[in-house]
């Protein structure tokens, strides 16, 4: 495959021709906020956070292939303004505090919040969810906490290729990940738990992760 050279934040970067901007950036240790991207899955483009300025146009970097001579800026005031609102909405709807969250530490949302320097005062302008949603503890190997879930869909996409046991259910704000009442399909490979970028899917404590 042929290579192209582009500039990301002033840095010359070489990338394979079909690669997306997001992948080229991450491969070169340039961070772009994202939740739904996983290197082993095809881009679903649903978190809508990975916007960059490519040759003067704001695009989703996970959807846009690199091009020879392309000039990419991962931050500028317009991107920051547009992205900040989406992230604040996400944080406002994130029912849980980070204290005691099993995802805390490697959490992708925490990373994004630090990156944009989230302003809690701005988040408080938004309306917070009224009640916590019940956890789904029906699976013998791991639990699902919808309050922590950012619906990146990585678990569903991962399972699709393995077992197809995880599904998206509901619509709008009630959208969740679920087994559709069919836990028997789960082979407990735990790949979904391993790939969960936040603390939504967590292994049951009493079981080994390869139970």
């Amino acid at each position: 495959m042929s290579k192209v050279t582009l500039t990301i934040d002033g840095l010359d970067v070489e990338a394979e021709k079909e690669t997306t901007i997001l992948r080229a950036a991450l491969d070169n240790d340039i961070y772009i906020p994202h939740l739904c991207y996983h290197p082993e899955l095809s881009p679903s483009g649903i978190c809508r956070l990975c916007m960059v300025n490519a040759d003067g146009e704001v695009v989703m970097s996970c959807q846009t292939p690199v091009d020879q001579g392309m000039v990419v800026k991962t931050k500028d005031p317009e991107i920051d303004r547009l992205r900040r609102t989406s992230i604040e909405i996400l944080v406002a709807n994130h029912h849980a505090s980070c204290r005691g969250c099993p995802g805390s530490g490697p959490c992708a949302l925490q990373k994004i919040m630090a990156y944009i320097r989230i302003d809690r005062k701005r988040v408080r302008r938004l309306r917070l969810p009224e009640e916590d949603l019940p956890k789904d503890q029906s699976n013998p190997y791991f639990d699902y906490d919808p309050n922590h879930c950012v619906l990146c869909n990585i678990c569903v996409q991962t399972c699709e290729k393995i077992q197809g046991a995880l599904h998206v259910i509901g619509r709008g704000i009630r959208t969740q990940i679920a087994f559709y009442g069919n836990n028997a399909d789960c082979q407990s490979c735990m790949e979904c738990v391993a790939r969960c970028p936040v603390g939504a899917l967590t292994a049951k404590e009493s079981r080994s992760t390869h139970g």
Binding site: I89, L90, L151, G172, T175
Partner: peptide, 14 residues
């Protein structure tokens, strides 16, 4: 909203 993308799912609710 189908609930898939962040701005639509959470933004319309806000």
């Amino acid at each position: 909203s189908c609930g898939q993308c962040t701005p639509c799912r959470l933004g319309t609710k806000q």
